[in-house]
């Protein structure tokens, strides 16, 4: 696998002249689209540059969104990620399955640097995540830059992690206002349209504890979408839900799957069959199979895949 080496890893940002949102310059071009007010924005001339590496990343055959290059991670002597190489294209939906402790959540969480890695490189949109090169060695990125990288990546957690001191609406507008500097009015309008989309507009002034688990998870999805990420990560989004609430969350995820790049750690086989382009089976920190859901379910190649499937499919 060839190595992408962006000449600059630090994003350059400027304010959208029409809505005030802080935007990160993608690395090339004179103008860009502001996802917050849907206008075409002329990039200030002083910021324009051609970032060859990022352009190369964007030019490849599939518009790579996520790329793992020989990624390794250890917890002490436990080798949780072993030489992971992975490429996820734009608009692909990838479901990750595997036994408990196989490293699937660690892999997902390393994409937005909630987990550090010990060697290798992870790129999102051609930019290295969490680290930068200095004197030919990788050092951890500054906190501000990591925060800016994470702002482009949405994440949904198993236990929702909604902010309990804020209402549903406040949960959603918090990051756009604090991180992107979007005016309250615009943020509220966007939050309301997202709440309509997940079917919870009438809950806007309630607190998270007043909602069911399924409703909380739908709010959590809306909260992540409010940052207009191109990539969404779902870490066992339905595992903490009562069975009758799983469907409503999966329905929202299925509708998202049509329009964005998603990585989903989940054992919901129905979702995988209906929405996934690819399914990865991970065991002991390695990607054992990487194929289509039909292929994996109907003709698993590896013995341990069969064993695992027999356990979860009964």
């Amino acid at each position: 696998m060839d190595k992408i080496t962006p000449s600059t890893n630090t994003p350059v940002s400027f304010k959208c002249p029409s809505c005030g949102a802080v935007l990160d310059y993608p690395g090339s071009g004179d103008s860009m689209h502001c996802p917050f007010c849907n206008s075409n924005v002329i990039v200030p001339e002083t910021l324009r540059h051609n970032d060859a590496g990022i352009q190369a990343a964007a030019r490849d055959d599939c518009n790579t969104v996520v790329k793992f290059v020989n990624v390794n991670k250890y917890y002490g002597s436990l080798h949780v990620l072993q030489d992971i190489n992975l490429q996820v294209c734009k608009n692909e939906v990838v479901v990750i399955i595997g036994p408990s402790g196989s490293g699937k959540s660690t892999l997902l969480r390393s994409i937005n640097h909630l987990e550090t890695i010990n060697s290798g490189e992870i790129f999102v949109y051609g930019r290295m995540i969490g680290y930068r090169e200095k004197n030919e060695r990788l050092i951890e990125e500054s906190e501000n830059n990591i925060a800016r990288q994470r702002a482009e990546i949405g994440m949904v957690f198993q236990r929702f992690n909604l902010f309990p001191h804020l209402t549903v609406l406040e949960n959603i507008i918090e990051a756009p206002m604090q991180v992107r500097g979007i005016p309250r009015k615009l943020a509220v309008a966007e939050a309301e349209s997202l709440l309509t989309r997940v079917g919870l507009l009438e809950k806007r002034n309630q607190y998270p504890r007043q909602l069911s688990g399924g409703q909380q998870q739908r709010v959590a999805i809306a909260r992540a979408l409010a940052m207009k990420p191109g990539l969404m990560l779902f870490d066992e989004p339905t595992s903490a839900l009562d069975p009758e609430m799983i469907g409503e969350v999966l329905d929202v995820m299925k509708s998202l799957a049509k329009e964005m790049t998603m990585l989903v750690v989940s054992h919901e086989m129905g979702f995988a069959r209906a929405a996934a382009d690819r399914i990865l089976f991970i065991d002991e920190g390695r990607i054992i199979e990487d194929t289509t859901p039909e292929e994996l379910f109907d003709h698993p190649r590896e013995e341990r895949t069969k064993l695992f499937l027999s356990k979860i499919l009964h």
Partner: peptide
């Protein structure tokens, strides 16, 4: 809950 800080970080907060 440490999940609160993780959620805040994942939204791009410093």
């Amino acid at each position: 809950d440490p999940g609160q800080l993780e959620a805040a970080k994942s939204l791009g907060m410093t």
